[in-house]
Structure formats: structure tokens, C-alpha cells
């Protein structure tokens, strides 16, 4: 594997809260390659969200490096907003903008951040919305949508910025069970199209079926990682074995 295949290099990333009493991340090092569908699993409080949110610096790390396309984004004089454009993020609670229509949710960032003209932005937004089967809801407001629909819109909103990587933080955890499938389907399609993805999820089925790498975190560290087969069929560390016994 050549080095220009590496998209994000994480080096000894640490995030402490309350001085150093809470070690949410305690030295994470990992590479995300182009086209990876990385699934992060682990017990509650293990630092999965903190890790994901650090990747686009929604969380400012205490120490360590995050190197994106060869540039350390934890460095001082970095145009963070520029880097965040490259990384789409999908949240557990959707975080759609309630005062804007679905279409406006999708076009606002392209228009004001990328200075796209409205026509172009609307055209692409409608195409993408159509792909997730929600073109007819373009004029609706977020409150009028079901959870599953909201999350599909949230995914499209991130895609409208043409990101190079998509970060998902438990995208299906706040959904009623019958809506989990429709969101996972959109994510599977994205993965098939070659999108680089880092996904925190409790959906082990998704991890097995779609992921090419599974990372198991516990206590702020990466305890074990590997292909889905290795992680799920022959876990090595006792902590992973214990975790899998509980969730599977």
C-alpha cells in the first residue's frame, strides 16, 4: 500500500478532561486509508465519539497529531473550516436545522461556505435527495419528517459538500428499530460507491457486512483491530471477547 493511499494519519492522540483525571483518549494511533470503511466499536465511554469528533477537530485534542493529506491539522495556523469541508459528519441526533426547509438544509453550506450559486446547489441537492427517495419532501421542515428520513437528509446534507470522508457517530442509535434499515441501506450504498467512512456503531451486522476494518476501543485506547472476520470470528484480547459476548 502506497503512502498516498493514506488519508488520515492519527498519531498518539490524547484527549483529557478535568486536567488529566478523565482520559477519554489515551494515545490513539491509526491510519485511515482512502476507500476504507472503518467501523469503530466498543463499550460506552470507551472514547469512540471523542475519537470521531477529534478527526474533524470538533474536539480539540490535548496532544498528538492528526495528519490529513500530509498536513497536521492540530497545528497552529490551519484554516480548520477548510478542512472540515472535506469531512462530512453525521450525528446520532441528526442535528438538522429546524428553521430551514429540507432543501435549505442541504444548500446552505454549499452556498455560503463554497460560494456556489443557488441553482447549482439546488440541482445537486435534489439529485442526491432523489437518490435517498426524499425528493418529494424538499419543501418540508425537519419536524415533519420521521427519524429515518431525518437521518437520510442529514447524510445528504454532508454529501452536498462533496466530502472526501464521512464520519458517522451512531447514526442509527436514536432511531426506532423499523427505521434502522433505511439508513443503513444509504450507508451501504455510499460504501459501495467507494466513499471513505469511519463509523461508530452498535450495528454488528453492518460492521461485518460492509466494514473492511473493525477497530475495538476500550478505556480510551485501541485494544484490537483487524478485518471483520478476524475481529468477530477470532478475537484475541479478553476484553474484546467479553464485549462481543455481551453484544452479539
Amino acid at each position: 500500500m502506497t503512502s498516498d493511499n493514506i488519508m488520515i494519519q492519527v498519531r498518539d492522540l490524547k484527549k483529557y478532561y478535568n486536567g488529566d483525571r478523565i482520559k477519554a483518549l489515551d494515545g490513539i494511533s491509526i491510519d485511515v486509508n482512502r476507500g476504507d470503511v472503518m467501523v469503530v466499536i466498543g463499550p460506552s465511554g470507551s472514547g469512540k465519539s471523542t475519537f470521531l469528533r477529534s478527526l474533524n477537530l470538533l474536539e480539540i485534542p490535548t496532544s498528538g497529531q492528526i495528519i490529513v493529506d500530509g498536513v497536521d491539522i492540530t497545528g497552529e495556523k490551519i484554516d480548520l473550516d477548510k478542512f472540515r469541508q472535506k469531512m462530512g459528519m453525521v450525528f446520532q441526533h441528526f442535528n438538522l436545522f429546524p428553521h430551514k426547509t429540507i432543501l435549505e438544509n442541504l444548500t446552505i453550506a454549499p452556498i455560503i461556505v463554497k460560494k456556489e450559486n443557488e441553482e447549482t446547489a439546488v440541482k445537486r441537492a435534489m439529485e442526491l435527495l432523489d437518490r435517498v427517495g426524499l425528493a418529494d419532501r424538499a419543501k418540508a421542515y425537519p419536524v415533519q419528517l420521521s427519524g429515518g428520513q431525518k437521518q437520510r437528509v442529514a447524510i445528504v446534507r454532508a454529501l452536498c459538500m462533496d466530502p472526501e470522508i464521512m464520519l458517522f457517530d451512531e447514526p442509527t442509535s436514536a432511531l426506532d428499530p423499523e427505521m434502522v434499515g433505511e439508513v443503513l441501506d444509504v450507508m451501504k450504498e455510499l460504501a459501495r460507491d467507494g466513499m471513505t467512512m469511519v463509523t461508530v456503531t452498535h450495528e454488528m451486522g453492518f460492521a461485518r457486512e460492509v466494514g473492511n476494518r473493525v477497530v475495538f476501543m476500550d478505556g480510551g485506547s485501541i485494544v484490537e483491530q483487524g478485518t471483520p472476520e478476524k475481529i468477530f470470528e477470532s478475537p484475541e484480547s479478553p476484553r474484546l471477547q467479553d464485549f462481543l459476548r455481551k453484544v452479539l
Binding site: 470538533l58 473550516d81 469531512m87 436545522f97 453550506a109 455560503i112 446534507r157 454532508a158
Partner: peptide, 10 residues
């Protein structure tokens, strides 16, 4: 809301 906006590059 802030996080979503910032993650979009605003």
C-alpha cells in the same frame, strides 16, 4: 446545531 454547522465548514 453548532456542531453540525461547523462540521459543514461554516
Amino acid at each position: 446545531q453548532t456542531e453540525a454547522a461547523r462540521s459543514l465548514g461554516m
